[in-house]
């Protein structure tokens, strides 16, 4: 088998990578695999995900994680580690102690602040964006909305998110103050 990248050397390294929603098998030579792994470190692929999990396991009791099982779909934590996919929405609650830190590692935050399904309202983000708009329009993130998010963040002990929101509130209050002066 020949390397997928350079097409010259024999492939000795076999990788599965996930980019966006595509799973790819890669067969690479030593040299290209080396370059590729440097590149992959900057992406959140499956390998990163599982490396992340391995890290948490050291901190947590390994047996505790392995014994976890989702009561709704029967997926065990071991299954999840092997497959890299959860079994159902309830798995998130079942593996909560591991997923919280994992989500934070993947996304830099583990607190949702986007849309919610209609019945469970949080209409904060439902706003029409004008074509070509790049910056938040006035009135999008109102201080009141941000304060709600801040409170949620503090409750969830998401302190980095909370700090970001606090700065944003300060900034908004300052500009509001300045605009008030101008008028």
């Amino acid at each position: 088998m020949i390397c997928d990248i350079c097409g010259k050397n024999p492939a000795t390294v076999h990788l599965t990578e996930i980019i966006d929603d595509q799973m790819n098998e890669l067969h690479l030579c030593e040299e290209c695999a080396h370059k590729k792994s440097a590149q992959m470190e900057q992406q959140f692929g499956l390998s990163d995900l599982l490396a992340g999990l391995a890290g948490f396991e050291k901190q947590k009791d390994e047996k505790e994680g392995i014994a976890l099982k989702c009561p709704n779909c029967g997926m065990t934590f071991k299954d999840f580690k092997k497959i890299g996919r959860l079994g159902c929405g309830e798995c998130y609650a079942a593996f909560r102690s591991f997923l919280g830190p994992l989500l934070k590692r993947i996304h830099g935050s583990n607190l949702h602040c986007g849309k919610a399904p209609g019945s469970r309202i949080a209409k904060l983000t439902r706003r029409k964006i004008e074509p070509g708009e790049t910056r938040a329009a006035p009135g999008q993130d109102t201080v009141a909305e941000l304060r709600i998010r801040l409170q949620k963040a503090v409750e969830a002990e998401a302190y980095e998110e909370a700090a970001r929101l606090r700065d944003r509130i300060k900034e908004l209050e300052r500009t509001a103050h300045q605009e008030g002066k101008k008028e």
Binding site: I106, H107, S109, H112, L124, T125, I129, A136, Q140, E161
Partner: peptide, 8 residues
């Protein structure tokens, strides 16, 4: 990133 930021 899909978590921690709003859609907008």
């Amino acid at each position: 990133v899909s978590l921690g930021q709003s859609e907008t």
